[in-house]
């Protein structure tokens, strides 16, 4: 999983990463991470990462494969709990609540911090059932009409309703890749999360479907705080307001996307976004 070779080849070893440059912190933070270390067994995947996710903004996490950006993202809603050897240290807070604190119920946390995955993964159920899944589990609807409403508004927010309104009872797996991914986003929205984490949500899609998803992300930021991991720098540039550049498990630079893409401050960031290797 951790492919360090490609990361190593990017920056010559004499370029030092000495704490993150740029502006990793902000006043209006939805989530704040301080001095986070993540270990896989004896292997340290994340080294002392600190930054904030700004409220109602899209923050892009970019970096070469194996730089730990996905690992980090999965810490934010404790998906890494599923991996027994994974160990998280440091402080991660959602609205001031400690995510890895004793009072935090990981199941409820994941309802507040939803996740969209790399490969569209609709459940083997109808489109309606896919979206209704979360609300049913969390008892968000008291009767059928309320559930219908949640399903419809979620599908609308995901820009999918008009395409599927006549076939809500058909399997979600019968949709095209881009539609499936929007269904997964609708499914995530349906439980009214506060933060949406996206792990390369468009990497399995064609350019048009990707553009649709990106436009959707742009609209979603009005209501949700979004963190997106992407391999495509262009995508990060297009959808995000803030960009964080990871390298070998460290946060190298974070700042306004425009600034990162026109005038990065760190040499490694410059090398990465301009496609210079070695």
């Amino acid at each position: 999983m951790v492919d360090i070779i490609s990361a190593k080849s990017l920056g010559s070893n004499d370029i030092k990463i000495d704490g993150a440059v740029g502006e990793p912190f902000c006043d209006d933070a939805k989530m704040s991470m301080r001095n986070v270390d993540v270990f896989y067994g004896d292997n340290q995947a994340i080294h002392d990462v600190s930054f904030d996710l700004e409220k109602n903004q899209v923050t892009a996490l970019i970096g070469p494969s194996g730089c730990g950006k996905s690992t980090f993202l999965r810490c934010l809603n404790r998906m890494n709990d599923l991996i027994p050897i994974c160990n998280v240290k440091g402080s991660l807070q959602l609205d001031g609540e400690e995510i890895y604190g004793k009072q935090m119920d990981p199941v409820l946390l994941r309802a507040r911090v939803g996740m969209v995955f790399q490969k569209p993964n609709p459940f083997p159920k109808s489109i309606y059932e896919n979206v209704a899944y979360g609300p049913k589990i969390h008892g968000l609807a008291t009767d059928k009409s309320e559930l219908d409403e949640i399903v419809e508004t979620s599908l609308r927010k995901a820009g999918l309703f008009n395409e599927v309104k006549d076939r809500l009872d058909q399997p979600g797996t019968g949709l095209s890749g881009g539609q499936q991914q929007r269904l997964c986003i609708a499914r995530t929205i349906a439980v009214s999360p506060e933060v949406i984490l996206m792990d390369e949500p468009a990497s399995a899609l064609d350019p048009i479907a990707t553009a649709v998803i990106e436009e959707l992300i742009h609209e979603l930021k009005e209501k949700y705080t979004i963190a997106i991991v992407t391999h495509s720098m262009q995508q990060a540039a297009r959808v995000s307001q803030k960009t964080a550049y990871f390298h070998l498990g460290k946060l190298v630079e974070m700042g306004d996307t425009k600034q990162i893409f026109t005038n990065p401050r760190h040499e490694l960031t410059e090398n990465y976004i301009s496609g210079r290797f070695g």
Binding site: Q234, A237, R238, T257, K258, F261, T262
Partner: peptide, 9 residues
């Protein structure tokens, strides 16, 4: 224009 080229390609 620079920002459009950098961000939108």
């Amino acid at each position: 224009c620079t920002s459009i080229i950098a961000i939108r390609q």
